[in-house]
Design a protein around this nucleic acid. Structure first.
Lengths: 250, 250
DNA sequence: GGCTCTATTTCGGAG
DNA sequence: CTCCGAAGTAGAGCC
């Protein structure tokens, strides 16, 4: 972990500092001060002079933060070309990107701080409770959806998209299961409806549709019933039962 | 613009620094160093020891950044309870939130820098090219979608969601227009299809459906045609024509 | 508060 | 590369 900082730099000092640390592509660089920011690309935006924090990461991603909100006021997820220089006596940062073609431009009017940080130790990150994990868990234990359910397939492709879980119930009827890691919405019900219709047409069999989620909105539930579909309560973050319900190895 | 910084602080110094600057709720606080981060709430995650930048804004939003990507590796959009203290000799930050119930916990293992910034001047921000603006523009000039179109309504609610633009064509047929500020996808086609079906059932009239977007994916176009729906090319960011086509005042 | 929808969505994965 | 869909989506607007 190294860091270098520059306080109240002159414009030319700032330019030199930025060039040095951005060139290498190793440092996370921040600039804090009064800036003007403009963006042209997928949309266009302009931010008048104001106090901002500009962060440029070693991978070329840029974000411009104001003093509230988790979302930057301006950003660029990736940069193909980074330019720093003096324009009309002001330090300017221009970040360009192809595909999509877009440009972010920051004019530094009065800078209080510029600093370069090196975050070296990469972090190992694990997430639990994604829809993919939920799907794996339910494929392993379809009983959690309904007793007697047998999973035939996961991510089964149809003409209208992939079915999360395709199964057969205790009575031998085909079942389409749509999973949501959060609250089930009308959108999810429509999705499920499309799959059910598609499978019905393809197989000619009678097909059940189940929306499996930890919760469901009221309108979605109404629509679900109206369409003759069903809801199953499943949790995205099941308690980690320390083998309590697991069959013993002996 | 004021700022205060603390280099290589001891754990107790860090705690004091954080308490002082977070308490006031005026400063944007950053901590850079080796941390462990865990989150439990809508999902659960754990990040092993690694170099991170933690940013707490005056509004209580928190984001934990690694050295790549525009998205934080962990975050909290809002915080109802912020706690800083020593746990087992380590400086710890705990951010809790109700609705949804979630907790972000950062353990500071080895801190290189803690700093507090005051971004005072609020920024004035304007964006051009949003879907809302596109909708307003097309409501004003429906000719851009199709000659002879008359807009009846915007954001017209149906049982399956709001119709962006509801109109009548030169032949008196009802038209449902679905807008996308970017490339039209299969999802947009499904959405349009639902609206058309709903309006057809509700009015008993024959109804056209138009997906208006600056582009469309190939599969979406195929699906659109198959469903008897149409595509209209409109731009989210029209060139600013300096009155060239405007009728003169005289 | 619940619900819906947009977003310069970002990000990752599959074809 | 395109296309699709999930996301701890965030955030705004409406009811």
């Amino acid at each position: 972990m190294q860091l270098e900082a520059l306080h109240d730099p002159r414009d030319d000092e700032l330019v030199e500092f930025l060039r040095e640390h951005l060139r290498a592509g190793q440092a996370l660089v921040q600039v804090v001060g009064t800036c003007e920011v403009s963006y042209v690309g997928r949309a266009a935006s302009f931010a008048d002079a104001g106090d901002l924090l500009v962060m440029v990461k070693p991978d070329g991603s840029i974000q411009v933060h104001r003093d509230r909100g988790v979302k930057p006021v301006n950003w660029q997820p990736r940069t193909d070309d980074l330019w720093v220089g003096l324009d009309d006596g002001q330090a300017v940062l221009v970040a360009e990107r192809r595909t999509p073609e877009e440009t972010l431009r920051v004019v530094f009017l009065e800078v209080a701080l510029a600093q370069a940080l090196h975050l070296q130790e990469e972090i190992a990150f694990v997430l639990r409770g994604s829809e993919a994990q939920m799907q794996a868990a339910l494929a392993r234990e379809p009983e959690l959806i309904e007793p007697g359910l047998t999973v035939l397939d996961r991510e089964l492709p149809t003409d209208v998209g992939g079915i999360d879980l395709f199964a057969r119930d205790r009575d031998g009827r085909l079942v389409v299961v749509e999973l949501k890691r959060a609250k089930g919405t009308q959108e999810a019900v429509h999705q499920l409806g499309r799959y059910v219709t598609s499978v019905r047409r393809f197989t000619g069999e009678s097909v059940r549709g189940i929306l499996a989620a930890p919760a469901i909105t009221k309108p979605a539930l109404a629509q679900l019933s109206a369409a003759g579909l069903e809801f199953a309560l499943v949790t995205a973050l099941p308690e980690i039962d320390e083998g309590v319900d697991q069959p013993s190895l002996f």
